[in-house]
Simulated assay, not measured.
Amino acid sequence: MLDYDKEADAYDDTRGGEPRAAAAAEAVLGLVPPGTGRLLDVACGTGIVTRRLATARPGLRVTGADLTYGMARMAAVRLPGAIVLADSRRLPFPDGAFDAVSSVWLLHLLDTGEDVRAAVAECARVLRPGGSYVTTVDKAAAHDVGSDVDRVLAPRPRRPAQDAAGAVTAYAEALGLVPAGRARFPGHGQGRSPRGTVADLGRGWFTRVPPGSPLAERFAARLEALPDQDRRRPDPVFTLLAFRKPG
């Protein structure tokens, strides 16, 4: 797992920056009903998406929560007074405190299905009856776009996909949430290039391929043999699912 305290300063520049944030915020808000009053953005990271959620609709009051101090510190600059340090599995808010809850690029980071269930349960708990929960699913799969880079990486060992759409839907439905929509948005600037992927191997991006290991070196050699070393392959397209808490 990456150290997100260390990643915080460079996070936005290496994750598509404002174009990706704009696409994510637009897709989330497309699944949040008009007239929503209070929205909680769980795992808000640097706040780059959260700020856009807060400014896109007049009257929408947005709170961000993140577990990592480095990320929350940056988010607090973007949304002063609206960011809290919090674990998604133990949110420090009362039941029914929010009209909507979002969790963008969170569930894939959690270690076990039990962790994912706990996070979804907390999002459901702090959601008022009639409110909406919106979350990304299938994050890792979105990055496999069928490129030559993906073909090189195909044999790598992978973490189990804790955010698989079917599993997340099952967890949500077990909590009484009702499926309420789906959206997709592009991960602008996140298409892989061979040279950039070699750098990602060296910084531990692929969690089951330790940097400097013989396996990492073999993948690096194959990537270095590909043409167009700095040309980014197609961007990933991410998926959002929406759920409604019956009123």
Score class of each variant (00 low, 15 high):
D5N: 10
K6D: 09
K6R: 15
D12I: 06
D13F: 09
T14R: 15
T14Q: 12
G17V: 04
R20D: 13
A21V: 05
P33L: 05
L40D: 00
G45R: 05
T50D: 00
P58M: 08
V62E: 11
T63Q: 13
L67H: 13
Y69A: 15
G70I: 08
A72F: 12
A75G: 11
A76Y: 12
P80Y: 10
G81Y: 11
G81S: 13
F93A: 13
F93I: 11
D95W: 06
D95Y: 12
D95I: 03
G96Q: 14
D99N: 11
S102P: 11
L106E: 01
L106Y: 01
L107A: 05
D115W: 14
A121Y: 12
E122H: 04
V126Q: 01
V126M: 02
R128G: 06
G130A: 06
G131Q: 00
S132A: 11
T136F: 06
K139Q: 12
H143L: 07
D144A: 14
D144I: 14
V145N: 03
D148F: 09
V149E: 09
D150K: 04
R151S: 08
P157M: 13
P157E: 07
D163N: 01
D163V: 01
A165P: 04
T169V: 10
A172Y: 08
G176S: 13
L177S: 00
V178Q: 10
P179C: 04
R184G: 05
F185C: 03
G187H: 08
Q190V: 09
G191S: 11
S193M: 11
P194I: 01
A199C: 11
G204S: 09
W205D: 06
F206P: 06
R208N: 12
P211W: 10
L215P: 04
A216P: 04
L223F: 03
D230T: 08
R232V: 05
P236L: 02
V237F: 02
F238Y: 15
T239W: 08
A242M: 06
F243D: 00
R244H: 06
